[in-house]
Simulated assay, not measured.
Amino acid sequence: MLDVLEVVTTVVVGVMVGVEFSVAFVMKRILDALPEDSGQLGHAHGGRMLGAVMPFWYIGSLVLVGVLAAAEWHHHGSGLLVTAGALLFLSVVMSILLLLPINGRNKTWTPENRPEDWKQQLNRWGRWHYVRVAVLVAAFTLLVAALA
């Protein structure tokens, strides 16, 4: 049963990290390169779509790593699992405090109602997202190292 928990946790966290990585390094660049209002509309749609799923994914990943750390408390690598969990917790806090406020505004914007500084706000979101991706990659690396 522990093997199943390890595999499920690795897949859930790994796919989440992959999605966030692709948002930062692929999708954002594609959307930013679109002409006129298309990029902003794409950002808004992505915010609505991923914004509906990611809270469950982030919390679920944190819970899975926490359960795994508790289950493997006396095994080699449990310290790495606790650190991975702490980094996932940090990513949740970053999301709530830094990224969600911008995303909450962005997902309602249209070319008619967006603020004048909308590009600066999206750039700020992008910078914080890069930091969050680095935290997530570190957490995933520790998770895999703990299970190796």
Score class of each variant (00 low, 15 high):
M1Y: 01
D3A: 07
D3T: 07
L5H: 02
E6R: 15
T10H: 00
V11S: 05
V12N: 01
V13D: 04
V15C: 00
V15A: 05
M16G: 03
M16A: 15
V17Q: 00
G18W: 00
G18Y: 01
G18R: 01
V19S: 02
V19Q: 01
F21M: 14
V23K: 04
A24R: 01
M27P: 00
K28W: 10
R29S: 06
I30Y: 12
D32A: 12
D32P: 04
A33L: 05
L34C: 10
P35A: 05
P35W: 02
P35S: 08
P35C: 02
E36D: 14
D37V: 11
S38F: 11
S38W: 09
G39R: 05
G39T: 07
G39L: 10
Q40L: 13
L41T: 10
L41N: 05
G42K: 03
H45M: 14
H45G: 06
G46I: 07
L50R: 01
A52Q: 13
V53C: 03
M54R: 00
P55G: 03
P55R: 00
F56R: 11
F56W: 14
Y58Q: 10
S61T: 09
S61K: 02
V63A: 13
V65Q: 11
G66W: 11
V67K: 09
L68K: 06
A69T: 12
A70I: 13
A71I: 04
A71Y: 00
A71W: 01
W73N: 07
H74P: 03
G77F: 04
S78E: 08
S78N: 12
G79I: 14
L81M: 13
L81F: 09
L81H: 11
V82I: 15
A84K: 11
A84L: 09
G85Y: 06
L87E: 02
L88Q: 07
L88C: 05
F89K: 01
L90V: 14
L90W: 05
L90G: 00
S91M: 01
S91G: 08
I96Y: 09
I96Q: 13
L97W: 15
L98P: 00
L99A: 10
P101S: 12
I102R: 10
I102W: 06
N103V: 11
N103W: 02
G104W: 02
G104Q: 11
R105M: 14
N106D: 10
N106R: 13
K107Q: 12
P111K: 08
E112G: 04
N113D: 15
D117V: 01
W118K: 03
K119E: 09
K119A: 10
K119H: 13
L122G: 02
R124T: 14
G126T: 15
W128I: 08
W128Y: 15
Y130P: 01
V131K: 03
V133K: 01
A134N: 05
L136E: 12
V137H: 00
F140K: 02
L143H: 06
V144G: 06
V144N: 04
A145T: 15
L147Q: 14
A148P: 07
A148Q: 14
